[in-house]
């Protein structure tokens, strides 16, 4: 508990990370409470009131704060519901791709030898295979849909987890405490579970969060191509796709879902940057040292810090 409060203190001091966290919390809250917040059913159409601009524009009205789309559906409501699909897909993919990648990385790094070469070649092959081609292939065979999308994105995104995990496992496998554990007679399961896995938690968490943003973008791209989320369901990528034909007369159709994607990805990245440093003892020491130096006048580090902030010494 005390440790949690300590982390929070650190977070409050880092404004960018704090903004990121607030952004993430907002998006998640919007997704969870979508039915309570959204003014309309996202699928309710009114073809006679289509392409209405946002409330503040000349022909806009407060009935539709962000305007209506090409079928007269409320853009704001669609964005609110769209966050659900986007977050759900990204989380599911991060989970599945993570599980697959971590398992393969652990096995590969721990067993070494032939199993390692085999699995890592598998990773190499998968990495060199163009992801979008694989997606096109699978979707055209199985048919588009949310489940397909999750499976396909998991299949094309697990490799980075395997590589990172393998590297860490190789490193800690050499360490004295793992050797000691083996000498006392611990089996491989216990060694992996008790002595290797804890080393993975921090880097994996950061990696998963960074990958999350990749998935948000990939989902948007695939839905944009018409291979992902299918109407009447909605997602930000799909909204950008169906709005692009009207860009000349209805800028709000692509702008708002686009901004939602940017906002989410940016928030996550800001927070993940802080988390990476916090989770790594060495980086954390460096940050701590910088902080101390800035507060102590007269040192070179403090001058540099002030110069960077634009203040006179």
């Amino acid at each position: 508990m005390a440790r949690g409060a300590h982390f929070f203190d650190e977070l409050v001091r880092d404004k960018a990370a704090m903004l990121g966290l607030i952004g993430i919390v907002t998006v998640v809250a919007v997704a969870i409470f979508a039915p309570l917040i959204a003014p309309y059913d996202p699928a309710a159409q009114d073809v006679l009131a289509r392409l209405k601009p946002p409330a503040w524009a000349a022909r806009g009205s407060v009935e539709h704060l962000l305007g209506t789309d090409h079928l007269g559906r409320d853009v704001l409501s669609r964005l609110i519901y769209g966050s659900r699909i986007t977050l759900m897909i990204a989380s599911a993919v991060a989970l599945f791709a993570g599980a697959l990648g971590v398992t393969i990385g652990l096995v590969s790094g721990y067993l070494g030898g032939r199993a390692d070469s085999l699995l890592m070649r598998l990773v190499d092959i998968q990495v060199s295979f163009p992801g979008i081609l694989l997606i096109l292939l699978i979707v055209s065979v199985v048919g588009p849909g949310v489940t397909t999308l999750v499976v396909v994105l998991a299949i094309t995104n697990w490799m980075i987890y395997a590589r990172v995990v393998r590297a860490i496992v190789l490193q800690s496998r050499q360490s004295a405490y793992v050797e000691a554990a083996e000498v006392v007679g611990c089996g491989p399961v216990r060694v992996i579970w008790r002595h290797i896995l804890p080393n993975l938690v921090a880097p994996l968490l950061t990696l998963a969060i960074l990958e999350f943003t990749n998935i948000v973008l990939a989902e948007a791209a695939v839905s944009f191509l018409g291979l992902g989320v299918q109407p009447p369901a909605t997602s930000w990528g799909l909204d950008v796709a169906s709005g692009r034909d009207y860009v000349f007369i209805a800028w709000w159709l692509v702008t708002f879902p686009g901004l939602c994607i940017v906002f989410t990805v940016l928030s996550i990245n800001l927070f993940a940057g802080w988390l990476r440093v916090t989770g790594d003892p060495q980086e954390r020491d460096k940050r701590f040292a910088r902080g101390v130096a800035r507060r102590r006048p007269g040192t070179r580090a403090a001058r540099a810090a002030r110069a960077a902030e634009g203040a006179k010494p």
């Binding site: 699928a43 309710a44 159409q45 073809v47 090409h70 079928l71 109407p231 009447p232």
Partner: peptide, 11 residues
Amino acid sequence: EQVEAIAAYWA
């Protein structure tokens, strides 16, 4: 768009 609009009418 025609397909989407009709789907909404049918719903």
